[in-house]
Design a protein around this nucleic acid. Structure first.
Length: 586
RNA sequence: GCGCCUGUAGCUCAGUUGGAUAGAGUACCAGUUUCCGAAACUGGGGGUCACAGGUUCGAUUCCUGUCAGGCGCACCA
């Protein structure tokens, strides 16, 4: 509809210039927007004001000319000029009703478009280190990433959802060592558990499984384990040096193969849990991409060689540095440490190179906002390797600060104090949790009060939207109970019976849906879809309270049933994109 | 100190990319059910859009500065 209006105005302007009513000027992009106030009609255009300056004419005068030419278009009943020079359009009844037929004809495909047809997008999200279960902090990224993916899919993109598994590096060594030390305790060894090791109960579970499988086979005397290990922090030492020395001893005492077994047991068990949590939370993936595979396949080394060949690496203090300052970063970054190990950044360079080489048109990284300082160096590396860094969109998700009542909950994976995603889902449900997360803009800091979400779960907006859907279903159940039925064809033929303000408002609301999907997808802003659904539900509830649908006037009744059927369809589609169920009764 | 994000009703947040009289929810107050589900609806009060300048027909929106909060500034991941 916007496009039709745009073309109409464009043509009228060309006509006016040709006839000399307007001077020869360049035409700007014509903007059509929906009116905030229905007293202003359905759509408004500000073109007269935009042209006022270049045409050196009064905006209202320009508008008058445009209106004269445009007024006789068949899908418009009224055009008028308002305020400083807005041109307001009111749609004809036929053209407003059409949306109901469109919704029902398209069914669960309504809202889809082909904007992204033929294009491939990759969305990487969550990608939490597999050192422990997902907690509520990851929930926002999971909800956001999965809805962004669905939105892109709705507008025609071929979407590839991916989780980057950081299964290499020091943090994972700490986890493996934590598991082993708990196992040693289970075998009867006595020592103080390191302050910097992972202390969560899940580590105990993994250690218990290890003990169950292998008995005391991997047990070593604590004197050996702690040989030449410097004091831990509580004893006046350095917690980092303490844990690093323990890792070295663990590898030496167990040997490479056994150490790897312990490592993999911890890794696999945690990844399995993460996969399960995400699936239960409605975040599905096409691929789990392993960092270790990138190192073992030599891709990391190849990426480093490529950078060396491009002359953007240099050696200093025994390490290899990437000259990211040449590409706008604050400082240069190490890719190979003086001990010969590649850094996480090196893996990430190789990973992004791999993504680009897979031929995606758009590559999206959903990161926690604490990683924002990381963006310049990743983009720098891509530019240095001759890639178009504009293809990479890094979407930052701000933290959700957890409260229990007025009390802020401090969370730390290391200390084992956190509310897991699973607990959240069990407490308030997947639907409420997802909707709640997605309702706020991603760049908005968010207060998540667990008690509020739990105690007021009936007031949660998600129920408001779901209830609208259930209410429509209930009307149709009632219809059947009365021995009546809905005839869609008859309803569609009588849509012009629908002249109440509430009905006209619903026509408008329904017709906004496709625009909302498009805008939300292109701007990566799922929250506008959530808000739209609340608005649509409100329009429906208001209508419900003001009018009856099952009435004696059979034509009117069929028309109303047809309208609410379309509302039901759109709510179902919208909730589906967000990953929330649309129950038939609640 | 530097960089990124944020600042809108008592509280939680929208604000269609610069438009018309800044909106919802919640909380508070007053109402609505012999009638398709009251998890709903109707009405009411509540604002220096953090502050100060600038850009223009027009600024909550864009620019600059100040103040306040969050996050980040590793040879960790």
């Amino acid at each position: 509809m916007k496009d039709q209006l745009k073309k109409l105005i464009e043509q009228s302007l060309l006509d006016l210039i040709a006839s000399g009513a307007l001077p020869e000027i360049d035409l700007p992009e014509i903007q059509i927007e929906r009116t905030k106030d229905k007293a202003h009609g359905d759509f408004a255009c500000n073109i007269a004001m935009m042209l006022a300056r270049t045409a050196k004419m009064n905006p209202r005068q320009i508008a008058t000319h445009i209106v004269e030419v445009v007024a006789n278009a068949d899908f418009i009943t009224k055009v008028d000029i308002a305020g400083p020079g807005f041109i307001n359009f009111t749609l004809s009844a036929d053209s407003a009703q059409q949306i109901v037929k469109d919704v029902l004809a398209a069914g669960n495909q309504f809202g889809q478009s082909k904007i992204g047809a033929g294009k491939r997008a990759q969305v990487e999200f969550v990608s939490a280190n597999p050192t422990g279960p997902l907690h509520v902090g990851h929930g926002r990224g999971a909800a956001y990433g999965s809805v962004v993916s669905s939105l892109l899919s709705e507008i025609g993109f071929d979407v590839h959802r991916e989780y980057y598994v950081n299964d290499a590096g020091r943090q994972m060594d700490i986890l493996a060592t934590s598991v082993w030390l708990r196992y040693l305790t289970a075998c009867g060894e006595q020592f103080t558990f390191p302050s910097n090791a992972y202390k969560g109960d899940y580590v105990l579970d993994i250690a218990a499984a290890l003990k169950n499988d292998l008995g005391d086979e991997l047990s070593r005397a604590s004197l050996e384990v702690f040989a030449n290990v410097p004091d831990d922090e509580p004893q006046g030492g350095d917690k980092e040096l303490h844990i690093d020395a323990l890792i070295v001893n663990a590898k030496a005492l167990l040997g490479e193969a056994e150490y790897r077994n312990v490592f993999d047991l911890g890794l696999n068990s945690i990844i399995a849990g993460i996969k399960e949590d995400l699936m239960d939370f409605g975040a599905d993936y096409d691929e789990w991409f392993s960092e270790r595979s990138l190192m073992e396949s030599g891709d990391v080394d190849k990426a480093i060689e490529q950078l060396k060949a491009s002359n953007v690496l240099y050696e200093k203090d025994g390490a290899w540095w990437f000259k990211s300052t040449d590409y706008g970063d604050e400082k240069d970054r190490v890719v190979v440490r003086d001990n010969g190990q590649t850094t996480y950044f090196a893996s990430d360079i190789a990973y992004h190179l791999n993504k680009f080489n897979r031929g995606f048109d758009t590559i999206i990284d959903v990161w926690g906002s604490d990683h924002h300082g990381y963006i310049p160096r990743v983009k720098a590396s891509l530019t240095a390797m001759g890639k178009d860094q504009e293809k990479l969109k890094v979407l930052l998700v701000q933290f959700a600060v957890l409260y229990r009542g007025a009390e802020k909950i401090a969370m730390s994976t290391r200390s084992g104090q956190f509310v897991t995603l699973k607990e959240l889902r069990e407490e308030i449900g997947k639907d409420a949790a997802r909707f709640f997360y997605v309702m706020r803009g991603a760049d908005q800091h968010m207060d998540f009060d667990l008690e509020l979400a739990k105690s007021q779960s009936n007031d949660n907006p998600v129920y408001y939207v779901q209830y609208a859907h259930a209410r429509v279903c209930s009307v149709f159940r009632q219809l059947a109970e009365r021995g009546l039925s809905w005839d869609a064809k008859q309803g569609e033929a009588n849509l012009n019976c629908l002249t109440e303000d509430h009905e006209l408002a619903l026509f408008t609301a329904l017709s906004r849906y496709s625009e909302i999907i498009e805008t939300a997808a292109l701007n990566y802003t799922p929250h506008i879809l959530a808000h739209y659904l609340i608005d649509l539900a409100r329009d429906f509830h208001t209508y419900y309270n003001a009018h009856h649908f099952i009435v004696d006037d059979i034509e009117l009744s069929q028309a109303r049933l047809t309208l609410i059927s379309a509302v039901k369809q759109v709510i179902e589609n919208g909730l589906g994109v967000i990953g929330v169920s649309a129950p038939e009764s609640m």
